[in-house]
Write a protein that binds this DNA or RNA. Structure first.
Lengths: 107, 107
DNA sequence: ATACATCATCGTAATATTGCAATATTAAAT
DNA sequence: ATTTAATATTGCAATATTACGATGATGTAT
């Protein structure tokens, strides 16, 4: 039906899936990497850098924001997007935990 | 247009995104966890266990297979699905690497 | 005040994903 | 040979995602 049956899964499974979904697009990975590379917070040229239209970038930024990864503060007309380190480490742990709990028992 | 512009991103970005996409559904996380929990490889009851229709489960298994995570061998009519440990660790490293390379420089 | 620059939102088209019923395939069991 | 059981494939409907042009809001510069 095109809609995930989230109610039959655990909160943890749904949460990790939601995070993975944000990472499931190369543009969003590129955005995260670019922001991380920048010395300051002038993320103005994200559009030129990535090569997607401004509304598209804005949409992607919004997806990243939804899982609490971005903090945005206005500096005049410019928006300063920063990665929320605490949240970032939280996500890292979630993934790591998942990977560690999966192991081979057969074959 | 509903289609990702994969050509403007690096191979690495596209690859990680593709892997994340597989993890971006709770059913697929649940499948991986269930297979991992099983002592043997009798994955027959995946359908009952997860609560989705058999074609749907089959479809999800196929997505997981596409990134090389599942090895399936037939044991008569039953299919034995196992996690490819080597590939699993490869994916784990890819994620870890990505997480480690993102860091805060501002704010 | 007017023009410009930056970013968000709306609307929309193209495509992808999710889910299942129906059906096919394959192998064991009778 | 038929039946049964397990899995795959096909076809389709509902919904989600991706992308962008047009437009709006907000702040800066002239």
């Amino acid at each position: 039906m095109g809609v995930s049956k989230t109610h039959i899964f655990s909160t943890h499974q749904n949460e990790l899936a939601a995070i993975a979904k944000v990472m499931a697009h190369p543009a969003r990975l590129a955005i995260l990497q670019y922001i991380s590379k920048q010395e300051g917070c002038i993320c103005t040229d994200l559009v030129d850098e990535i090569g997607l239209a401004q509304p598209t970038i804005s949409q992607h930024l919004n997806e990243i924001k939804k899982i609490g990864l971005l903090e945005g503060t206005f500096e005049g007309k410019n928006l300063c997007y920063c990665i929320d380190t605490e949240r970032w480490e939280e996500l890292q742990s979630l993934f790591q935990e998942f990977f560690l709990n999966i192991h081979q028992n057969c074959c």
